[in-house]
Simulated assay, not measured.
Amino acid sequence: MPSDALKAIGFDADDTLWQNEYFFRMTEEKFANLLSDFAESDHITERLLEAERRNLHYYGYGIKGFTLSMIETAIEITDDKVPASILHDILRTGREMLRHPVETLPHVRETLADLSGRYRLILITKGDLFDQERKLAQSGLGDLFDDVQIVSEKTPQIYQRIFNSAGLNPTASMMVGNSLKSDVIPAIEVGSHGVYVPHNLTWVHEHAEPPTDEPRFHNIEHLGELPDLISRLG
């Protein structure tokens, strides 16, 4: 078998295997409604996005950091006069997000089951450790993965480390996800295949231009198309 023949497939989790951004958008709307007496909805959303970006370095990705950013934004927009009742409501919406049932996306289970055993499947996700572990457990998909890696950020160095630690050359690996910025581009940079599976909702922080001139860049409409893509790659 050629040294670069596909042996391992990494999968993103949020909005690749199960719904995630949808619940953030719903909570953003609730948050804007809570502060509607102090500012317009668009302004609130813009200020919240600024806070999220500013706080990624401190809180990382996930619901807990998002909740803290909502609290910070509420304090800023109200000029330090945010009512305690609104702070309670923000904390409650954050807890509701953490309790929300996991909704797997179409074609996920059958695709993973088809590929499991033929390739080394690695879940590579970023975010809060407890929340990501909760979602994986509730999804019922855990037994289909050979390894689970929960990281603070997805960079070329991270992919290199994960694939190398599995005894694999990155050129014999593939990363599948809905984020060009986090899942696809950095994986291609270390020689892996990068498969973009668009989701109708993707956080603006994850937007990037598709690397269409890269021969290892692939685009599929949904996860059910992945086995056929792999077969075509030989």
Rank of each mutant, 00 (worst) to 15 (best):
E110S: 13
H57R: 10
L129T: 04
G65H: 13
V82W: 01
L123M: 15
T93D: 05
T104M: 12
P106E: 07
G127R: 05
A113R: 09
K126R: 14
R92W: 12
H88E: 15
Y59G: 03
R25A: 13
I77Q: 09
S36N: 14
K81H: 13
K64N: 02
E46R: 12
I90H: 04
V82A: 07
T67V: 13
T93S: 01
Q138T: 13
I122H: 11
R53L: 09
I124S: 10
M97D: 00
T27H: 12
D42H: 07
L121F: 10
L49S: 10
I63M: 12
E103F: 07
D37H: 08
D42P: 02
V102N: 11
S116K: 15
V102I: 05
R47K: 11
H88K: 12
F66E: 00
Y61K: 00
G62Y: 04
L121S: 13
F66N: 14
V102C: 02
L68M: 14
F38H: 05
N33S: 00
E96H: 01
R54H: 06
F38L: 04
A39K: 08
H100F: 03
I86E: 01
A137W: 05
I122T: 15
A113E: 15
S116N: 15
G65W: 01
Y59M: 00
G94Y: 02
L35N: 11
E96Q: 09
L34F: 08
M26N: 07
M97V: 13
I44G: 12
S139K: 03
E133N: 12
T45H: 15
T125Q: 13
S41W: 02
A137D: 07
E72K: 10
T111H: 02
R95G: 00
L91S: 07
G94L: 09
I122R: 07
H107Y: 14
L121V: 01
L141N: 02
P106Q: 03
F38V: 11
T78V: 11
I86L: 07
L56Y: 14
S139V: 06
S85T: 15
M26F: 07
L144R: 09
F31Y: 15
Q132A: 08
E76P: 00
A137P: 03
A51K: 11
L121I: 06
E96D: 15
H88Y: 05
H43V: 15
R25V: 14
L98Y: 07
L68I: 12
R118L: 07
A137G: 02
